[in-house]
């Protein structure tokens, strides 16, 4: 029983890995890299939290 579980675990690991990688490649080829790395720190601050007394 445990031997089957071992193979199942390998298979599932591979499945999750492939899902992630496939999605990563799909996203990277679909969207422009400039858009993907466009996130900037501090945008919450600019809109919601002003820290003024």
């Amino acid at each position: 029983m445990w031997n089957i579980l071992e193979y199942a675990a390998w298979a599932l690991s591979a499945l999750f890995g492939v899902l992630m990688l496939a999605d990563l490649i799909r996203i990277d080829t679909t969207y422009d890299n400039e858009l993907l790395i466009s996130s900037r720190e501090g945008e919450i601050e600019a809109t919601a939290e002003r820290h003024e007394i």
Binding site: E6, Y7, A9, S13, F16, G17, L19, M20, D23
Partner: peptide
């Protein structure tokens, strides 16, 4: 396999 699976599954969930 179980160590790998734990990391892979949780990474996928995070993704």
């Amino acid at each position: 396999p179980f160590i790998v699976l734990a990391i892979m599954f949780l990474a996928w969930l995070n993704y």
